[in-house]
Design a protein around this nucleic acid. Structure first.
Lengths: 215, 215, 215, 215
DNA sequence: CGATAAACGAGACGGTACGTCGCGTCTTCTG
DNA sequence: CAGAAGACGCGACGTACCGTCTCGTTTATCG
């Protein structure tokens, strides 16, 4: 997204003159994310971002063609800094794993990401491939985590290999998004447990928890 | 939303002079929807809507306090004109009813509504109650339809009364929204059937439709 | 200069909508002159003028197409407010009248006007008719005063009717401008008296003052 | 003006490294004059000059501290290339000499120089000593020529030694400047002859030409 | 002769003013 | 008096230019 110079074929341009200082990119994007978080999408201003990053407005426009693109890239870069799901729980059962992923911190993080997503949403229709960036940064990590947990359950024979895990891994994220963005209700453990026990477990052919304890 | 002067109370003002011509409201809202569809939310302008409706800007602001509210109302009015779900299928089985609701026309309608929803989304965070209007106009009808179908299934004893139909009726809409807005993939019968057979039916304790029996 | 709406033929446009509030013009122009005087031409900013006049930038640009035109008009309006030469001396002799016009206040005024003229000068080449406005506001009043004094001298038979008073009335202004703008020397009585006695009086065929006294 | 590092003093720096290529100076100044003539002072850009001279912007700023100084120097260098007044006419009479200096080429040159002067004028107020450079390059040569002619007339006893030739030599240049820059009328022989016969000759105590022929 | 230090073309940098556009309000005139 | 037309104050947008800085390269002097 950042590449404004078309990568073309073999860099036939010798790139004369001062090089664009790409070490500033992260600083600018971080400033953009700060302002985005503080003032919201609509209140965000290019001058604010430039001032926060101690950069000139022209420097921003040299790298991103518009305010929208800048935000997109800022969100995309959030992917790295955001809490990743590299450390997945491994409790031995799918339900145990899913329940283990219910953490207040994770919920807060999801809600924040969804707020950002809401700001971007109107632009997703217009710019092809833009949705991919937002998805990859904001939603896909969670989806991927779900998919991995289910894949493990298949491998250990806990659930049938015929389960459509690509579909099932989307259910929690989409329902959380719906609840936060549309219904504007808080996401809590009870809601997530309802999803696990009322939707996901039946869908993979597993019954309710053998012991009654749910947390 | 539209009523800025509540006529219900005291009415000490005899409403002198020319009455507000409320026959113009639909025209203005239609113009708003046209512009919204043509230029997208961000590109939409109050002046555009006013010009399209051959109305003055002040006339619009006399009726709606802001651009956002106008759009909300425009969307809300779409509710009436849009294909409502007053005529629900009644095939005798829940699965039959759900499948019967899969119609190309209905899918197209949903996608259009979701595009509008996308444009509104960034505002839903700021304006309290605004999300309710959007939800009521764009998503709730479908949810309500699902709920009714499930309620009937409970009443006829097809599924357990313990099913969380408030939760389950949200699954299809949220998954469709996710698919259209985030993944930008088309919604087709196959996808919807996967949801019905892979998620909903197991969740309500019904098996796959191998034979007509519902176990 | 202010008329941006072409006066055309017969006002075929009914001029619907709110009228442009032309009572604001003088306020804006006055603000422009203030800023011009305080910060100089180069330091002057449209936002400064707008803020000073408590007007929006768009209001200024609706009336004047650019910063330059605004200044021009501001200068032109100065014509009215500036000290006019309606009260010319009448001492009975041309030399007496010319000497009577040498006043410290008048000199200061001239120098200020010339500083403004200097700021405008680079634009005079590009815009046809623009020079006329500047001339009419900044220099012509003085020239006209000289011309009147000489015309009176002709009428009373003091000097020959063959004198090229259109030419001679320009000498003092042009020499003063040259001295102030190019040589950057102060204009004082001695300089002006040198012009009167060394240039103007010989040119109209009058000798030096009959008695040696010059004041 | 060009010497930023004064080589006269101490010279503690051994001037290592590549020497500044001063053969580029004329090319750059010529480019500056071209751009100045084509786009006017306000439209002129350092980047334009650099591009035209196939030089880097830093090269220009290494030699001249600002845009204004560059232009001044460009104008000053024009002094050499412009038609100088080293070959003054010597017809034996002051009037003959003055009339002999009226040449179409000279008039064109003057008008061009005045256009440049106009562009510089707004800066003359701010930069001390800048006016001197402009004056020395653009106006003083003509003034000096007039002064020499009048000095010769004094020396040959044609006119009184009491004439204020410093003042009188300014009259033609100032009146020409006024006519070109303010009145925007062409300068022709008739105008210049009017000045000679109507102003200068009377001022030095000489009558009209003995014979009626003026050329 | 090789090291070194400055100047070179090119262009990115921080900053600032420009002129445009949209919002929501206010004013004028018409029906 | 409602309604159309549109000017108003405000403020963000994206562009252009200034004067400085940083690249990688070239060139002249010094060791």
């Amino acid at each position: 997204m950042t590449q404004l110079d078309i990568p073309g074929t073999t860099e036939h341009s010798p790139r004369l003159g001062r090089k664009r200082d790409h070490t500033r990119d992260p600083e600018i994007l971080a400033a953009a994310l700060e302002v985005l978080a503080e003032t919201g999408y609509d209140g965000m201003t290019i001058d604010m971002v430039a001032a926060r990053a101690k950069a000139g407005k022209a420097t921003l426009y040299r790298r991103w063609p518009s305010k929208g693109e800048l935000i997109i890239d800022a969100v995309a870069c959030m992917k790295q800094s955001g809490n990743d799901y590299s450390r997945l729980p491994d409790t031995g059962s799918l339900r145990g794993d899913l329940v283990a992923m219910i953490k207040p911190l994770s919920i807060k993080d999801s809600e924040k990401k969804l707020q950002i997503l809401a700001g971007l949403m109107s632009m997703l229709s217009h710019d092809p491939g833009l949705a991919d960036a937002a998805n990859a940064a904001l939603l896909e990590p969670k989806v991927a985590a779900n998919r991995v947990l289910m894949q493990r359950a298949i491998e250990r024979g806990e659930i049938s290999a015929g389960c459509d895990i690509d579909l099932l891994s989307l259910i929690t994220p989409s329902m959380v998004a719906y609840r936060v963005l549309i219904l504007r209700k808080p996401v809590d453990s009870a809601f997530l447990l309802s999803l696990i026990d009322g939707v996901l477990m039946p869908a993979v052919g597993l019954g309710p928890p053998t012991n009654g304890k749910t947390d």
